[in-house]
Design a protein around this nucleic acid. Structure first.
Length: 770
DNA sequence: GAAGAGCTATTTTTT
DNA sequence: ATAGCTCTTC
């Protein structure tokens, strides 16, 4: 019957067809895991299961989006529309919008990202008059994250002598107070951090059986991707929701568990059979992605780990090339090697830039590589690092918007109350805060009733006036929000607050880029409004947009088809694949990381991380290490990574260092693991260094060029063109209509059906003209 | 209250 | 090395 089943191998098909009861799919790297998941969901629907009753939890938004698209291809997009598919965080944020009031949160609660959380924590520690060198905000945040992920509430903490003792032993006896103050502060602001989204979901489900019953009844079929990277909190949610029908299918690979540092518990997957004794279990072991050399080398690596499920990954693909291992003399040399090699392979094999990825252990490694790529004019795209929505200027504007939705959002308020500068300084804020605390009110409540409370705050008339102006302005935005769409309001905010002017006045390259980012944000708001209107998903609400923003990662803003070399950390590369993958920095203390050498468990996670990196490669993996590297502003010596020695030499091709000099191409011999300096190279390398520093550019190209409303190249779209839209994908232009300045295009998208889009805002790319 | 100078932590990974 | 933070000065 269904053609998709014929696209599966035996085990895959069995896993797809096991629709009822608990199922575990252990999916080796490149074994078609996503295919199984998508077809399984499609199969459910083809067997009469209402998409309304299916919940699919993924690790990233991107994975959810891609999977949804693929499912739509099988069952049609109108069918796929009702599927609940997304990350734990986004799905349960949506549920909490409805249920959080049961816990005393407003339904328009703000989601605090890492930055917000850190800022709250800093304030907490200052408030409690603790030494921030002992109570390091980041560390405290991590500790609290651990508590939350293990469902240890503040009260539970104080009832747990073991935890208290542990914190006392760590010389942080006030940890409980910090925890309490942090939670209270968030609560008062009507805000949840990432961990809260899971913790509060658990709380609602436990405390309100009728709510649990509602969602149990709704989500009759539950699927969890990347199960090896779920934490305890997520585990409990899944368990609770699935306990009625037990139609739970988890998919994952214990060998690719790489998020222990943020609470992922590999025992969730290792113990699935214990939780569900009659679970069916399938192991996908055939790798369709990589060459034999890569698969075998990766198997060598992972075999060194003790904690794992038995699995025998194999491939019938070509043997492939051996894996080059390049020994660089410096990190700059390594970067230059990567750039040159990309250039060579690209020419030789006629590949595109986006066939290449460079996967590194730490973000800091990207710098040298970027520089080398720029020098060779190879376009690249950096993933991760600071995401678009975390940039200062973007976050400033967003904070204004957040404040309109949730006036108690203190982080947002404090961020914008004096930005752009309007003469409301620290002293003023302190006086206000003190008064608000005394009155058990939020800052905003005091500001709202300034004429009443003003005289009692001890602030002078001039300052009160400034505050009054500020609050009046905010209120005018709120009024406007009732009658205008969020794009118009945001534009008004940007103008009225002086934020736009502030950025316009700054004509440094950084300032220009900031202005561009604001424009980009406004564009995406406009796009959001358009899209929501077209999708008929009720009134486009600012709250929805802000939620997307809070949970968005850098991966989500990707222009998929851009022909650029991908640069990212290994963590971010999970689930992706590339024909050619570079893994630089294979040195002790870097990969494996210095921080993870203490226990076997930590080292095993590093090893899995390397396993993940290696198995991203389809045709070729290219490894490198350097004998010296700039770190902490100093040059330090480095030893090759132990992981290099864990692979059988027969899979590897140790390359001697060849200086990438334009003139001198003489190969230099050096011991593979020796670290003798090569004097000849050092001399020659001098002029290069000079050149490199001269070409240093501070600006990294940010996303696509921003789209200005009214941009000329939008006019070039005509009837019959095949175009690509950021979200809707590929489609054909059926007709054009409207004023020259407001042309709307009727487009039939392959996966999303027919849409009418305003050309000036829909970022369309012409794919072909017929 | 704002601007500039100096200091210091940061480099492990992130929904 | 660098950005962000804190302190000092006007």
């Amino acid at each position: 019957m269904s053609t998709y089943l014929s696209e599966l191998n035996d085990v895959q098909r069995q896993a797809v067809e096991a629709l009822e009861g608990p199922v575990m799919v252990i999916a080796g790297a490149g074994s078609g895991k996503t295919r199984v998941l998508t077809y399984r969901i499609a199969h459910l629907m083809n067997n009469g299961v209402d998409s309304f009753n299916i919940l699919a939890l993924t690790f990233t938004n991107k994975a959810a989006r891609e999977m949804k698209e693929r499912i739509a291809k099988v069952v049609g997009h109108s069918e796929a529309k009702n599927l609940w598919m997304g990350t734990f965080h986004s799905i349960f944020a949506r549920i909490l919008r409805v249920e959080a009031p049961l816990l005393g949160y407003p339904s328009n609660f703000t989601i605090y990202d890492q930055q917000d959380a850190l800022s709250v924590m800093r304030k907490v520690i200052t408030d409690l008059q603790l030494d921030k060198d002992i109570y390091k905000p980041k560390q405290m945040l991590n500790r609290i994250s651990q508590f939350k992920n293990n469902l240890i509430t503040v009260r539970a903490y104080f009832n747990n002598p073991e935890l208290i003792e542990a914190d006392e032993a760590a010389m942080k006896p006030k940890t409980g107070e910090v925890y309490r103050a942090y939670v209270e502060r968030c609560y008062k602001s009507g805000a949840m951090d990432f961990d809260d989204l899971l913790l509060r979901t658990n709380e609602v489900l436990t405390r309100f059986p009728e709510v649990l019953a509602k969602y149990q009844d709704r989500f009759r079929y539950i699927m969890v991707d990347e199960y090896q990277d779920t934490n305890h909190s997520q585990y409990l949610i899944v368990k609770a929701l699935a306990s009625r029908f037990e139609n739970l299918c988890v998919v994952g690979d214990d060998a690719q568990s790489i998020y222990a540092f943020r609470g992922a518990n590999i025992r969730n997957i290792l113990g699935f059979q214990k939780d569900y004794p009659d679970a069916k279990s399938f192991a996908l072991e055939q790798n369709y992605r990589s060459t034999q050399n890569i698969v075998n080398a990766a198997n060598d690596i992972i075999a060194k780990n003790k904690d794992q499920l038995k699995k025998d990954v194999w491939t019938s693909n070509d043997e492939g090339k051996t894996i080059p291992v390049y020994r660089a003399l410096t990190d700059i040399d390594e970067a230059r090697f990567i750039a040159s090699r990309i250039f060579e392979i690209k020419m030789r094999d006629q590949l595109n830039n986006n066939d290449f990825a460079v996967l590194y252990r730490t973000n800091a490694q990207s710098r040298a590589i970027e520089e080398a790529l720029r020098k060779k004019n190879i376009p690249y795209r950096i993933f991760g690092g600071i995401s678009f929505y975390q940039r200062k200027e973007v976050k400033d504007l967003i904070s204004y918007l957040r404040l309109l939705i949730n006036t108690n959002d203190e982080e947002a308020l404090l961020r914008v109350i004096n930005y752009p500068k309007r003469g409301i300084g620290l002293t003023t804020i302190q006086k206000l805060t003190v008064f608000a605390d005394e009155q058990k009110m939020t800052l905003y409540e005091v500001l709202e009733n300034l004429s009443l409370y003003g005289p009692r705050t001890g602030l002078n008339g001039g300052t009160l006036n400034k505050l009054h102006n500020f609050i009046t302005m905010l209120q005018s935005f709120q009024v406007k929000l009732k009658t205008h769409d969020v794009f118009e309001v945001a534009l008004e905010v940007a103008k009225q607050t002086g934020l736009l002017k502030e950025l316009r006045d700054d004509d440094t390259p950084e300032g220009i880029s900031r202005l561009e980012n604001i424009q980009e944000l406004l564009n995406s708001l406009q796009g959001f409004v358009e899209e929501q209107q077209q999708l008929d998903e009720g009134n486009p609400s600012l709250a929805n947009f802000l939620e997307d923003v809070a949970l968005a990662t850098d991966m989500d803003n990707e222009d998929e088809d851009a022909d650029k070399v991908a640069l990212m950390t290994v963590h971010l590369a999970k689930g992706l694949e590339f024909p050619i993958v570079f893994i630089p920095g294979l040195e002790e203390n870097l990969f494996p990381s210095m921080m993870n050498l203490n226990t076997r468990l930590e080292l095993e996670e590093e090893r899995r991380l390397f396993y993940v990196a290696l198995t991203r490669a389809e045709k070729q993996a290219i490894l490198s290490y350097s004998v010296s590297r700039q770190r902490w502003g100093k040059i330090i010596d480095a030893e090759p990574s132990r992981f290099l020695e864990e692979m059988d030499d027969k899979y590897l091709d140790w390359e001697n260092p060849t200086p990438m000099l334009p003139v001198n191409n003489s190969g230099l011999s050096g011991d593979l693991f020796g670290d003798k300096p090569v004097p000849r190279f050092k001399k020659k390398s001098q002029p290069i260094k000079k050149k490199l520093t001269n070409t240093t550019q501070t600006l990294r190209p940010l996303k696509q060029a921003q789209v200005n409303p009214g941009d000329a190249d939008h006019q070039t779209i005509e009837e019959g063109y095949t175009v690509v839209h950021d979200r809707f994908g590929k489609g054909k232009v059926l007709s054009l209509e409207g004023e020259p300045d407001n042309v709307k295009a009727k487009i039939l998208f392959d996966n999303s059906g027919e849409k009418k889009l305003l050309l000036k805002f829909a970022k369309l790319r012409v794919l072909s003209k017929n």
